[in-house]
Design a binder for these strands. Structure first.
Length: 179
DNA sequence: ACTAATCTGATCATACCCTGTATGATCAGCGCATTAGT
């Protein structure tokens, strides 16, 4: 079972997570919470989820991210239309700075990292199935696995940019010295 | 069409170690990120 070497047909490999469908009641709760604080901390998101929504904290986080993206559009296009909700406009910079606590930093054991790195080399864009399988294998929530892959890819790209090829950078250094 | 899921790249924050580096968490996205399920 370890080897599923179907080299082609990778089309369905990167499957997305199935789309979450929030009920009207759940949306009401989320929107209300958003008005109270569009940047809830981990504890708040967990509370909202466990008490009212009962899905997964990471889904709540994504909902807030998407909502913020859309909400800012609206604000710019119609700034004074929204007078009813003027309550939520008084988010001063101080308030944003005193944001609630983040999730605790996850620390991975070397064997967990080994598994993740191996998977990354195999496929840096794993779909939901692969991520869940990995999560189960190393005993860490799937949402953390997803973040790990995001960070890994991002840093991989950055590193590649920094060292495109040595010849170019050497030439550039020479030119700089001439100046 | 609407919006959840996903992506990159930048930045904040913390563990580990020696004040910097590696990396997990969070954020925006700008003539308003893109992709894709319902």
């Amino acid at each position: 079972m370890a080897q599923d070497n179907s080299p082609n047909k990778t089309i369905t490999m990167n499957q997305r997570r199935s789309r979450t469908k929030f009920t009207e009641d759940q949306l009401k709760i989320l929107i209300k919470a958003f008005h109270q604080n569009p940047y809830p901390g981990y504890a708040t998101k967990q509370r909202i989820n466990s008490v009212e929504i009962n899905t997964d904290e990471s889904r709540i986080q994504i909902w807030f991210q998407n909502r913020r993206a859309r909400h800012q559009c609206q604000k710019k296009s119609e700034p004074d239309e929204d007078l009813e909700s003027s309550q939520d406009q008084d988010h001063s910079e101080e308030e944003i700075q005193s944001r609630e606590d983040r999730r605790c930093r996850t620390s991975y054991t070397s064997s967990q990292l080994h598994t993740l790195i191996k998977a990354f080399m195999n496929n840096p864009y794993p779909g939901i199935d692969t991520r869940e399988q990995l999560a189960k294998e190393i005993g860490i929530p799937e949402s953390r696995v997803q973040i790990w892959f995001q960070n890994r890819r991002s840093r991989f790209h950055v590193q590649r940019k920094r060292e495109p090829d040595d010849q170019d950078s050497e030439q550039r250094q020479d030119q700089e010295q001439d100046l």
